[in-house]
Design a protein around this nucleic acid. Structure first.
Length: 271
DNA sequence: CTGAGATCCTGGGGGC
DNA sequence: TGCCCCCAGGATCTCA
């Protein structure tokens, strides 16, 4: 499932491939996926727009359009944004929206489970105003993170997944960061010591940086804008590794459920 | 404010 | 081998 490193990788690929191109036509074959401002049709509103830039906000891919509008895309679990290789004009399997640019370039939004959404935003729409801090930004200071946990009784794993606090961390990187910091996922956030909080702050940034470097984690369906898999699945310490030895202490990795989410961790070295 | 639970979907895994 | 059942999983909404 695409989390911050995967979305970052996709956005960079899309920026390379699409910046400066103008949308000629849009095909929407599943209406619920493509959301436009009230009174407008997604396809008609997007046609004629030029891609000024492509970036990321939390787990959203954000296309900045020349008109000042933005196109925000959330891939949820199985969504894909893929730029077609030269000459490939067929929609990919499970394509629900396809953009054709004036130079013939094609972009498919494909999604097996139909959970993803593409939302065209009016200029200045503050849709992400209440979103959490970007964990790789300067605003995510150690001190800010330390105080974020004060008074929060929720398990630290659930806290890390709350997009309104920190934006972009999903199940994979929550598990990995907690392992790296040596913290038990079920521990109430406010009961984590100051040294452990510092370790976790560093671990979050470290694991996200390392995964971006590896172009993301492909454990399920994730591929980048070129359709290529990432490499960070080879560096995972705990996620999806039930019964395998902990890379740090050798005890078998266990799986529990926290906040209705599968959670992989080591009883030996996460306290 | 906070957390729990339902909801949306389908491929694939487990059970028989 | 084949078939049926069930469930993961992120965000959003409702409810307590």
């Amino acid at each position: 499932m695409p989390e911050l490193p995967e979305v970052e990788t996709i956005a960079r690929g899309l920026a390379n491939a699409l910046t400066g191109k103008t949308v000629a036509a849009v095909t929407v074959t599943m209406a619920k996926i493509a959301i436009a401002p009230p009174g407008e049709t997604f396809a008609a509103a997007l046609a004629g727009e030029t891609i000024a830039a492509v970036g990321r906000r939390g787990k959203y891919v954000v296309f900045q359009l020349a008109s000042g509008r933005r196109l925000a895309v959330h891939l949820r679990m199985t969504g894909r944004l893929i730029v077609h290789p030269l000459g490939y004009s067929e929609p990919y399997p499970y394509t629900h929206v396809m953009l054709v640019f004036t130079d013939g370039t094609r972009l498919s939004f494909a999604d097996v489970r139909q959970f993803g959404r593409m939302r065209l935003l009016a200029a200045g729409d503050p849709w992400d105003a209440d979103g959490g801090v970007e964990p790789l930004s300067e605003g995510f200071t150690r001190e800010a993170f330390l105080s974020m946990l004060d008074g929060r009784r929720t398990p630290i794993k659930a806290f890390l997944l709350d997009q309104s606090r920190i934006a972009g961390i999903g199940n994979i990187y929550a598990c990995e960061a907690l392992w790296e910091a040596g913290i038990r996922p079920s521990r109430p956030s406010h009961r984590i010591s100051r040294p452990a909080r510092r370790r976790l702050h560093g671990a979050i940034r470290d694991v996200l940086h390392r995964s971006i470097e590896a172009r993301g984690t492909s454990v399920d369906d994730y591929v980048d804008a070129e359709g290529l898999k990432g490499g960070f699945q080879n560096q995972l310490a705990v996620y999806g590794r039930l019964g395998e030895p902990c890379p740090r202490c050798g005890k078998p990795i266990v799986r529990t459920v926290i906040g209705q989410r599968g959670t992989w961790w080591c009883r030996g070295c996460q306290k």
